[in-house]
Amino acid sequence: MTKTEATQTANCLRCGRALRAPRSIANGYGRTCKAKVREAARAEVIAAHKPAQVAKALELIELGGIVAVRGRRVFRTVSSDGTRTYLSAPQACNCAAGLKAKHVCFHRIAAQIVAAA
């Protein structure tokens, strides 16, 4: 099967419509469906955590305290007092709370939200 045949038969994984744009074919979703999937993932992340932690994570994102280091997998995040930085990912964080692993830190929640977007 050639590449042109693959693009003619590609369908959206969400709604099943035919995909024509190369970017949509690579993602597996059309623009509208991809936005809906992103929003659902973001809402799922927010619903899974305590409101106070989510508020701190959203504040971190709004203030630009999270920067992608490696694509959308690893992020450099700033501490709540602004004196330290940490490496955070959706799965882990090297801050004190993240290393103790008693609960999910707000750096990790912010990384999950940004990765879902």
Score class of each variant (00 low, 15 high):
111 A>D: 00
102 K>Y: 11
81 D>L: 12
101 A>Y: 07
108 R>D: 00
18 A>P: 11
36 K>Y: 09
83 T>G: 08
11 N>K: 15
100 K>E: 14
93 C>P: 02
31 R>S: 11
55 A>M: 05
12 C>G: 07
107 H>D: 02
85 T>N: 06
94 N>M: 10
104 V>F: 04
25 I>Y: 00
60 L>H: 03
109 I>W: 06
78 V>Q: 10
43 A>D: 13
48 A>N: 09
66 I>T: 00
43 A>R: 15
32 T>M: 15
53 Q>G: 09
111 A>V: 01
112 Q>D: 05
64 G>V: 02
96 A>F: 07
104 V>A: 01
15 C>D: 05
50 K>L: 07
29 Y>R: 06
36 K>V: 13
94 N>I: 07
55 A>W: 03
99 L>E: 09
18 A>S: 15
65 G>D: 00
25 I>T: 03
75 F>V: 01
94 N>W: 08
96 A>P: 02
104 V>E: 02
65 G>K: 02
9 T>C: 02
31 R>T: 13
112 Q>M: 09
114 V>Y: 06
39 E>M: 14
76 R>Y: 06
103 H>R: 12
106 F>A: 11
21 A>R: 13
87 L>C: 13
6 A>Y: 03
68 A>C: 10
72 R>H: 12
31 R>M: 12
57 A>N: 11
27 N>D: 06
78 V>G: 07
106 F>K: 10
23 R>Y: 04
102 K>Q: 11
117 A>P: 08
71 G>L: 03
74 V>H: 09
97 A>F: 12
89 A>F: 00
3 K>V: 13
99 L>Q: 12
94 N>C: 05
55 A>R: 13
91 Q>L: 10
104 V>W: 03
56 K>Q: 07
42 R>K: 12
81 D>T: 12
14 R>N: 15
60 L>C: 05
31 R>F: 12
25 I>S: 01
62 E>H: 15
30 G>R: 09
48 A>H: 14
27 N>S: 07
103 H>W: 15
2 T>C: 13
69 V>L: 11
105 C>T: 02
92 A>L: 10
20 R>W: 08
32 T>I: 15
46 I>S: 09
75 F>I: 00
116 A>M: 01
86 Y>G: 00
2 T>W: 10
81 D>I: 09
90 P>S: 04
93 C>Y: 00
49 H>A: 04
61 I>T: 03
44 E>D: 14
37 V>G: 08
15 C>E: 03
87 L>T: 07
73 R>M: 09
101 A>W: 11
1 M>G: 13
7 T>M: 13
27 N>E: 12
9 T>M: 11
85 T>Q: 15
93 C>N: 00
9 T>F: 04
82 G>L: 11
12 C>K: 04
108 R>Y: 00
78 V>K: 14
59 E>F: 09
71 G>W: 05
44 E>R: 15
67 V>A: 14
80 S>G: 10
111 A>Q: 01
66 I>M: 00
15 C>P: 00
98 G>Q: 02
107 H>P: 01
20 R>N: 08
99 L>H: 06
46 I>D: 01
36 K>M: 15
82 G>K: 08
48 A>W: 02
50 K>N: 14
90 P>G: 05
72 R>I: 06
109 I>E: 04
12 C>W: 04
3 K>D: 14
49 H>T: 03
18 A>Y: 13
45 V>P: 01
57 A>Y: 05
109 I>C: 07
35 A>E: 01
57 A>R: 04
36 K>H: 14
87 L>N: 12
